[in-house]
Design a binder for these strands. Structure first.
Lengths: 149, 149
DNA sequence: TGACTACATCAAGTGGACTTGACGTCAAGG
DNA sequence: CCTTGACGTCAAGTCCACTTGATGTAGTCA
């Protein structure tokens, strides 16, 4: 693990990759999508601002909950293009995320509890279920907007 | 929506697709992966058992929480290949799922609450955070096994 | 009976998220 | 100074989860 001096506020690609747990090529890829940005040294090497780590953490968290990079970009585009994001900037994003996460948590909790019930009543075997109709409870919903694809 | 007679226990591809909210081609694809199965009529048309809908619902639920088809197959492979799955069969799967879902719910809840804290303390802006270090709290974890990729 | 739709097979294409390869350059250590 | 490794660009490749297309057959209904 490369030690990054306290004072240095611009990080090298390898350092960022290491700290964020992604490949350098991934940084290039994200940059090509406009998710992160960098400046260049005299020798054309990339340098990343320290808060790029935060953005990468945000991306990782988003992906872990199944959000696409497109949607992540939508969120990040609300941050100021130049200059440092303020607390207020992040707060707006965090609020949206809070709602989405809550929704997703509720979905998962419902799913888990339905599963628990189904152990009891056996509705996941071939008999029909008195509690719910899992065919439709889980299977329906059709092609409406899926908040979490 | 095609009405399926009460008594018929073998369903046609179109019926299954409609009810499960997937394309017929998806059924072929899943069959090629061994996730579902069918028998054939004299005229080589596929026929699905009614509980295929349940399997499809299971697959959909799994995907929605970010589980790969490979892992779904692992779970489904624990069901009896021939004959109807019993309550006990599903119970085993449900128990595993319960644990995984619980874990995931806890992860999401932690994530959400961390976000909430961060609105307050501003740690998602450039200042360093007294509560936690989001760079590492979210960004680290390195390349260890990811239960939910 | 003839049109029309649903279904069959198989190869190939798509989109998202990256990774790999080929090849040249910059920078730090011995 | 020179080697070595980290980095640069760009095209192409990979993996997953499907979808589309081409082409032929089976069943249904006026």
């Amino acid at each position: 693990m490369p030690q990054i001096p306290e004072g240095r506020s611009w990080l090298k690609p390898g350092e960022v990759a290491e700290r964020a747990g992604v490949a350098v090529s991934t940084l290039h890829y994200y940059e090509s999508l406009g998710l992160i940005s960098s400046r260049r040294t005299a020798g054309n090497r990339r340098e990343y601002r320290r808060d790029t780590l935060r953005v990468l953490a945000f991306i990782r968290a988003a992906q872990r909950v199944g959000v696409s990079l497109d949607r992540v970009k939508e969120a990040l585009d609300q941050l100021p293009r130049e200059g440092l994001p303020t607390t207020k900037d992040w707060a707006r994003i965090s609020r949206q995320w809070h709602d989405e996460l809550t929704e997703r948590i509720e979905y998962l909790t419902g799913l888990r509890d339905r599963f628990s019930d189904c152990i009891g009543c056996g509705c996941l075997s071939l008999k029909s279920c008195p509690y719910s109709n899992p065919d439709d409870a889980l299977g329906a919903g059709g092609q409406g907007p899926r908040r979490f694809p």
